[in-house]
Computed example of a mutant assay.
Amino acid sequence: MKLDNIRIVLVNTSHPGNIGGVARAMKNMGLSRLYLVDPRQFPDEQAEWRAASAVDVLEDAVVTSSLDEAIADCQFVVGTSARGRRIPWPLLDPRQCAERMAVASEKEQVAVLFGREDRGLTNDELKVCNLHLNIPTSADYSSLNLAMAVQVVCYELRMLLDAPSLPATEDAEWDTPFATRENMERFYTHLEETLVDVEFLDPAAPRQLMARLRRLYSRVRLDEMELNILRGILTETQKWVRKAKASDSGPGPG
């Protein structure tokens, strides 16, 4: 496992003290890459105070204006979720998820997303994730502080660091790098355009088609070559649709 390939991404954090607490939790477990998506208040003295001896993690934090920017180069994205969703997504606990992240981090960029203190990640943000992570808690009191949640995930990663061998949950010997999140988003846009062209998708009433297709491809995990093949198929499909429409609108018999 390569901890340097794993980043913790905090989305729209409202309290700077929580950012400092997260930095401290990360450094305790040996993680150092912190990304902050549009934080409400940062930098801030409260963050530095809560970080204690982990101020270096704060100083090196990458601040972005959007989630897309924070994970554009990532190939494996995990979103923390405490709520049930209309469309079920692959869901693991922190221990199972750490095993998957550990394997992926050997050759890929991995991101773990943590949402807002009051409402977590939105459905749209969770759609970009390959897996959803849920931290089991007591039904009597299920609320977790942001830094506590990050600590649990980082702890599970740390526990695997010195393990004699990583769980063989996926084949780490892959011949082509897995697709980045940025390239996957381009693919989803291309796929939606093509489905509209062939009249399989009605843009006026899309329902949950694209969400389900995102779930499908996120579960499979495409590598860059597979993604290029699919993009090529979509491009050729669009060409044939244009030819068919041109033929139908051509001049009739004289």
Results as ranks from 00 to 15, higher is better:
residue 118 D to A: 07
residue 118 D to M: 07
residue 119 R to F: 05
residue 119 R to Q: 11
residue 119 R to N: 14
residue 120 G to K: 15
residue 120 G to C: 06
residue 122 T to L: 12
residue 122 T to C: 01
residue 123 N to Q: 14
residue 123 N to W: 02
residue 124 D to Q: 15
residue 124 D to P: 01
residue 125 E to L: 12
residue 128 V to W: 09
residue 128 V to E: 13
residue 129 C to N: 09
residue 130 N to L: 13
residue 131 L to R: 09
residue 132 H to L: 15
residue 133 L to P: 09
residue 133 L to T: 02
residue 133 L to H: 01
residue 135 I to E: 14
residue 135 I to H: 11
residue 135 I to K: 01
residue 135 I to W: 10
residue 135 I to Y: 11
residue 136 P to H: 05
residue 136 P to E: 12
residue 137 T to I: 04
residue 137 T to M: 08
residue 137 T to H: 01
residue 138 S to F: 10
residue 140 D to W: 08
residue 141 Y to N: 11
residue 143 S to D: 08
residue 147 A to R: 05
residue 148 M to K: 01
residue 149 A to G: 09
residue 149 A to W: 09
residue 150 V to E: 12
residue 151 Q to R: 04
residue 152 V to D: 09
residue 152 V to Y: 00
residue 155 Y to L: 10
residue 158 R to S: 07
residue 159 M to K: 09
residue 160 L to S: 09
residue 160 L to P: 10
residue 161 L to Y: 10
residue 161 L to D: 14
residue 161 L to P: 00
residue 162 D to A: 12
residue 163 A to D: 04
residue 165 S to P: 00
residue 166 L to P: 05
residue 168 A to T: 08
residue 171 D to K: 07
residue 173 E to T: 13
residue 173 E to N: 15
residue 176 T to L: 03
residue 176 T to K: 04
residue 180 T to N: 09
residue 181 R to N: 14
residue 184 M to V: 10
residue 185 E to H: 08
residue 186 R to A: 14
residue 186 R to K: 12
residue 187 F to N: 05
residue 188 Y to A: 12
residue 188 Y to F: 15
residue 192 E to R: 10
residue 194 T to Q: 04
residue 194 T to Y: 14
residue 194 T to S: 13
residue 196 V to N: 02
residue 197 D to N: 12
residue 197 D to F: 08
residue 198 V to H: 13
residue 199 E to H: 15
residue 200 F to N: 06
residue 202 D to N: 15
residue 203 P to K: 14
residue 204 A to K: 15
residue 205 A to N: 15
residue 206 P to S: 04
residue 208 Q to S: 11
residue 208 Q to P: 02
residue 209 L to A: 10
residue 209 L to C: 06
residue 213 L to A: 07
residue 219 R to G: 08
residue 220 V to H: 08
residue 220 V to N: 01
residue 221 R to N: 05
residue 221 R to I: 11
residue 222 L to Y: 05
residue 222 L to Q: 04
residue 224 E to F: 01
residue 225 M to Y: 07
residue 225 M to A: 14
residue 227 L to K: 04
